[in-house]
Simulated scan of single mutants.
Amino acid sequence: MDKPKFLLVDTDVLPDVFLKVVYAKKMIAQGKAKSSSEAAKLAGISRSAFYKYKDCVQQYNSKMSDNIVTIYATLADEPGVLSSVISQLYTSGANILTLNQNIPVDSVAHVSISAKINSINCTEQELIMQIKGLTGVVEAKLLSGS
């Protein structure tokens, strides 16, 4: 039998230690615990339990992943083109999470942008069409999304 890398499991059937590790990680991230020792103590687990599971236990947020899109675009290597794409995303109500632009080759640069779209004022396809209509945008497509 092939062993899957990840499982989605209802927390009601998990040992409490996993939820406590997630809580301890949250306390560190929010600055409510200054160290992993303090976070483990706040969560009611041992430091060794925290270290054993901290890299393997993540909270799943289905609403977060449902509202994220990745857009791939080819842009002309001209001043202001990327800025106009970013402005269009802002105007549409998208919140950029990551942006990666490669060094231009043959006068075009490839860009991938991941954005939260739970507040956009148009459909995903309309957003892509708006981006495609911008000066200097050679191509734009939705790689992944809700």
Results as ranks from 00 to 15, higher is better:
residue 2 D to W: 05
residue 3 K to C: 01
residue 4 P to A: 09
residue 4 P to R: 12
residue 6 F to M: 12
residue 9 V to A: 03
residue 12 D to W: 07
residue 13 V to R: 03
residue 15 P to W: 03
residue 19 L to E: 08
residue 21 V to W: 05
residue 21 V to S: 10
residue 22 V to N: 08
residue 23 Y to R: 14
residue 24 A to T: 04
residue 25 K to C: 03
residue 26 K to H: 13
residue 27 M to A: 15
residue 28 I to A: 06
residue 28 I to C: 07
residue 30 Q to V: 10
residue 32 K to T: 07
residue 34 K to V: 04
residue 36 S to L: 08
residue 40 A to N: 13
residue 40 A to F: 13
residue 44 G to L: 01
residue 45 I to C: 05
residue 49 A to V: 02
residue 50 F to G: 12
residue 55 D to G: 08
residue 60 Y to W: 12
residue 60 Y to A: 15
residue 63 K to W: 08
residue 63 K to F: 05
residue 64 M to I: 11
residue 64 M to G: 00
residue 66 D to C: 09
residue 66 D to A: 15
residue 67 N to C: 10
residue 67 N to I: 03
residue 68 I to M: 09
residue 69 V to D: 02
residue 69 V to N: 05
residue 74 T to H: 02
residue 79 P to L: 08
residue 80 G to A: 12
residue 85 V to Y: 00
residue 85 V to N: 00
residue 88 Q to E: 12
residue 90 Y to T: 09
residue 91 T to Y: 05
residue 91 T to P: 00
residue 91 T to E: 09
residue 97 L to K: 10
residue 98 T to M: 06
residue 98 T to W: 04
residue 99 L to I: 15
residue 100 N to E: 13
residue 101 Q to Y: 00
residue 103 I to F: 13
residue 105 V to N: 13
residue 106 D to P: 12
residue 107 S to L: 10
residue 108 V to I: 15
residue 108 V to C: 03
residue 108 V to W: 02
residue 109 A to K: 03
residue 110 H to I: 10
residue 111 V to G: 00
residue 113 I to K: 12
residue 115 A to N: 06
residue 116 K to P: 00
residue 116 K to L: 11
residue 120 I to Q: 14
residue 120 I to Y: 13
residue 121 N to Q: 14
residue 121 N to A: 01
residue 122 C to T: 14
residue 122 C to P: 08
residue 123 T to M: 04
residue 123 T to G: 09
residue 125 Q to G: 09
residue 130 Q to K: 15
residue 131 I to D: 00
residue 135 T to C: 04
residue 140 A to E: 00
residue 140 A to H: 02
residue 142 L to Q: 06
residue 143 L to R: 06
residue 143 L to C: 01
residue 144 S to M: 07
residue 145 G to M: 06
residue 146 S to C: 10
